[in-house]
Design a protein around this nucleic acid. Structure first.
Lengths: 192, 192
DNA sequence: TTGATTGTCTAGCGATGCTAGGATCGAACC
DNA sequence: GGTTCGATCCTAGCATCGCTAGACAATCAA
């Protein structure tokens, strides 16, 4: 039995290695550089090994997306917990969210831009994704205002943040006034 | 002279054919289906002909982006011209923008998601892109509110719309309450 | 020791974007 | 009108992509 357990442990370890290496490669050189060959070379195994863990490249992206969503949720919760007042928390959330996107562009893309084969906004949506949304909801529900559904408000607020994050990083928005845009968005959208 | 003119005309005509065909193919089957081979086959020329017009696939995307930006600007101007009052115009703009994104997903991606090799938010940004932003600015400058830079406000408003458009189409947001989200966004962001 | 199972790798398939080099065709000159 | 020559276009091919079949080796059970 112990032998089998050891094998399973090693296998799980290698799976973590694959995900971590893919993520590292994506952050270092962009998702285009993440090819199955390069990835295989970096983990010092041959290509087909990847396919014994994941159905394909898409599933690797999906795994990184789940990992990233959990981290995003944690970052948001940490930031909001340290802030005071509903408006302060909403602002802290916005800052934390945009900061995460800027610091982990490849992971952010895995979650929100690329196709990782994950179901979103459905019943069978994986827990980390649901929880990331929940983390936003916990904070933003406070500032939705009367008569506005907290879920709907959170979706809208989130979409606005997502727009800022993606357009800024794609060079569609000049990077200099990010801070002012964030303040404007939070001040206008939230109701205290 | 006339011979040369005819040739130039035919060449320009073929270039339009390439762009139109690529766009059609992208809208019909998605950007993944737009390969140089398929595109060449559809225009009934060989692959290298594409490269006598464009540096590569990226430039074709760029051409579609410019074309699309002009259409988006026109759509926004038409919609706002027909609406009444600053708030009404801002709302009409939002509707027109999201409508354009929903009806022309491939073109929208060419403008805002894919890499068409175009410079954004710079001095040498192509005119159609600048003009599209100008179209937004014309309308949104009215509702920026006192003490808020119209340009900055427009960028923020636009980013929010972009977030709604992309998240909805990527299945990250449930499609049912788009209308309510749009209203919420416009009502909160604008100052009348 | 043998046989079977599990694990891994080599090699290759059909695509992709892009390009070199040869063939062909038409305009222009003697 | 025939010939030259340049522009135009296509065939064929390169390197790389995601992914997989089948051979091979290592490990375990009998």
């Amino acid at each position: 039995m112990s032998v089998q357990e050891r094998k399973e442990r090693e296998r799980a370890e290698r799976e973590r290695l694959i995900v971590a290496t893919a993520r590292e490669l994506a952050e270092q050189q962009g998702w285009d550089a993440v090819t199955t060959r390069r990835l295989a070379e970096r983990i010092e195994y041959s290509q087909p090994v990847l396919y014994s863990h994941f159905r394909g490249k898409r599933e690797i992206i999906g795994a990184i997306a789940l990992e990233g969503a959990a981290e995003l949720a944690a970052a948001v919760r940490t930031a909001t917990a340290a802030a005071k007042g509903p408006h302060g928390r909403a602002y802290a959330l916005a800052r934390a969210y945009l900061d995460f996107a800027a610091r982990n562009p490849a992971v952010y893309d895995a979650i929100f831009q690329l196709d990782g084969g994950l179901p979103y906004a459905q019943e069978d949506t994986p827990e980390p994704l649901k929880d990331a949304f929940a983390a936003l909801l916990e904070c933003l529900g406070e500032v939705a205002g009367d008569g506005v559904d907290p879920g709907l408000f959170t979706e809208t607020f989130w979409a606005a943040l997502h727009g800022l994050a993606t357009l800024t990083r794609a060079g569609r928005l000049p990077p200099e006034h990010t801070e002012r845009r964030t303040r404007l968005l939070v001040d206008r959208l939230t109701v205290v």
